[in-house]
Design a protein around this nucleic acid. Structure first.
Length: 595
DNA sequence: GCCGTTTTCGGCCCGACTGTTTTCAGTCG
């Protein structure tokens, strides 16, 4: 059987590039220092556990929902798991000086550029060191030339195949575009899974890895198949359409690269180990390490085949994920929470949050029609919304200041309100709220007057231009909109587009504080390029008491399907139904948004 | 470098695949 993969090209509605300059030292920059320290230590062949500590610290920092600057100010850096005095000192140094002297020392002890070699798949620190020491090579172009001239195959421990592998790795790197958005990966994952599931002998097929955890971007796609026999499954997988390269080919693991550069790893597992494998390959790495440490403490061993008693090597769990967690004294943990934060402790104490689910959602409050730049007429939008099980919706077309989007003038908005009121009079069991996505102008005033906005049921405000304002001005601008008593929701608050446009420069903590005080909600825009707010901001905003709306910003019927990406983001943000406006019945929503 | 409900020293998660090796090191996830 041949696997057919349909790769959809998603149309990018906004592809303008905007750049922002921010001089404060952010978490991600400091995390990057620690990643480089780990790589440099590894090349120098130093203690592997020390290396791991720096790697872990880098990942922990990337996942933090509070800025290191604030944590440092509060004096609580050392209380973060995996960060002790040594790393805390280095964080403080980075915050104060913008650099870490230890990092600079390490860098100067090795040639400039040697770290770039580690980006080549299949080439790690040991070989990078070997190549540098024997051939004095510390850049990818030099390495490529040396490999082409056949200079690598004579190095100790290397041969002709290693040389070819490095050349292939360089070629892959040159063509790959880094990380893929959920929207790009999802159609591919679903198509391949569908084909795998109908293969003879396949009991179960699921996606694992960061895709299952719902991360906003995916490095590569991990697929798992439960089957007693792997040969025929692997054979079919290798016939997937559009394979550019086969990286690894074995009985239990095969890795391919598609023409678009996406790497897909397929693992075939015996059915009675599928739960353990699904747990293992879903990760995250940090979550798994913690879980295995927990297992060891109970005299169990955990691997991708199951949970085993160390004394007897007897397998005591593995068929289902639930069983694996249960035997370790834990409640099943939703994949979106498995980031190695405090989810294992929460699970042990039966204190995991009840996360938002699709079935909790009753309304869609951010939708466009042909009145502005939507593709659906009002009646068509209603039909699509009903078909998807929504109980009511809001129509929120753009305001006129947004010329490109066919925005409404005040007069056209009044006409639209009339049209919607008439529709509601004749509609049974389905109500449409009259709304607007009104533009926040550069000075923070709105494109419609308060008198006009007062006639609406639901008002969204959003920034659509003037992205490059400095932090103070941008924060002031958005907070002014938040403080307007007519505004219920701020749409795509940071304006970022994944892989395309950086976020607006906003003091997020001030935004959260203002939203909570003014009872203005923040949107979780579900478009896979936006996912805005992102998971970290959501976790950060929730303790302020901010409300959220989970929206698809629908312009055409397919846009409704993006909801699953927003749902995953909200779940990663640990939101419960009551945090989200879309879970309220119409009358409750009206009360909830009243100021 | 981090960490401690047996611990302030001595541990620190686990396995598949590949290539170059005759039993294992390197890389990856």
């Amino acid at each position: 059987m041949r696997l057919i993969v349909v790769i959809f090209t998603r149309k990018i509605k906004e592809n303008r590039l905007e750049f922002r300059y921010n001089h404060s030292m952010e978490n991600n920059e400091i995390a990057h220092f620690f990643t480089e320290i780990a790589d440099l230590l590894e090349i120098r062949g130093e203690n592997a556990f020390k290396v791991r500590t720096y790697q872990r610290a880098a990942r922990t920092i990337e996942n933090l929902s509070e800025s290191l600057a604030d944590l440092s100010r509060r004096g609580v850096l050392e209380s973060i798991d995996g960060i002790g005095k040594g790393i805390a000192d280095k964080i403080r140094e980075a915050l104060e000086t913008g650099a870490i002297s230890y990092h600079l020392e390490l860098k100067s002890s090795l040639p400039e550029g040697i770290l770039s070699l580690l980006a080549i798949p299949g080439l790690g620190p040991k070989k990078a060191k070997l190549i540098y020491e024997h051939l004095n090579i510390a850049s990818i172009p030099e390495l490529k030339a040396a490999a082409q001239e056949g200079k690598l195959q004579d190095l100790p421990g290397m041969g002709k195949k290693s040389e070819e592998k490095i050349l292939k790795g360089i070629a892959l790197l040159e063509q790959s575009s880094g990380r893929y958005t959920l929207g790009e990966v999802q159609p591919i994952a679903e198509a391949i899974l569908h084909c795998l599931r109908i293969l003879k002998g396949v009991v179960q097929a699921e996606a694992a890895g960061s895709y299952r955890r719902g991360k906003e971007t995916i490095g590569d796609l991990d697929l798992l198949v439960a089957a007693r026999q792997s040969e025929s499954v692997m054979k079919a997988f290798l016939e997937t359409e559009g394979i550019r390269e086969v990286l690894v080919q074995g009985a239990s693991k095969t890795s391919i690269v598609l023409a678009n550069g996406l790497q897909i790893d397929l693992r075939v597992i015996p059915p009675d180990s599928f739960g353990a494998a699904l747990q293992y390959f879903t990760g995250s790495k940090d979550h798994n390490v913690q879980l295995r440490e927990l297992a060891l403490g109970m005299n169990f061993k955990l691997n991708e085949y199951g949970v085993f008693e160390i004394a007897t090597d007897k397998k005591i769990a593995g068929k289902t994920e639930e069983k694996v967690y249960k035997i370790l004294g834990l409640a099943w943990i939703p994949p979106e929470l498995r980031e190695g934060m405090d989810e294992i402790a929460l699970s042990r104490n039966r204190a995991l949050p009840r996360l938002i689910e699709r079935s909790d959602i009753r309304s869609a409050l951010h939708n466009h029609t042909t009145w502005s730049d939507g593709r659906l007429a009002l009646e068509e939008l209603v039909r699509e919304a009903k078909r998807r099980g929504y109980a009511f919706i809001a129509v929120t077309d753009h305001s006129g200041s947004l010329g490109v989007a066919n925005g409404l003038s005040p007069d056209r908005l009044k006409q639209q309100i009339e049209t919607i009121r008439k529709f509601n009079e004749t509609s049974e069991n389905f109500q449409v709220l009259a709304g607007s996505e009104v533009d926040i102008r550069a000075d923070g005033t709105l494109a419609f007057s308060d008198e006009l906005l007062q006639q609406l049921d639901f008002v969204i405000a959003a920034v659509h231009s003037g992205f490059e304002q400095p932090r103070e001005k941008m924060t002031e601008r958005i907070c002014r909109a938040v403080e307007n008593p007519q505004v219920h929701l701020i749409s795509h608050p940071t304006g970022r587009l994944l892989n395309r446009r950086p976020p607006l420069n906003i003091d997020m903590e001030r935004l959260f504080e203002t939203c909570a005080r003014c009872k203005t909600a923040l949107e979780i825009n579900s478009h896979y390029l936006r996912l805005d707010l992102n998971d970290k901001h959501i976790r950060e905003a929730k303790p302020y008491g901010v409300g959220f709306a989970l929206e698809t910003d629908t312009h055409s019927p397919d846009d409704f399907d993006n909801l699953e990406f927003g749902l995953k983001t909200a779940r990663r943000g640990r939101l419960a139904p009551e945090d989200i406006l879309n879970t309220y019945a119409l009358e409750d929503l009206k009360k909830r948004i009243q100021k």
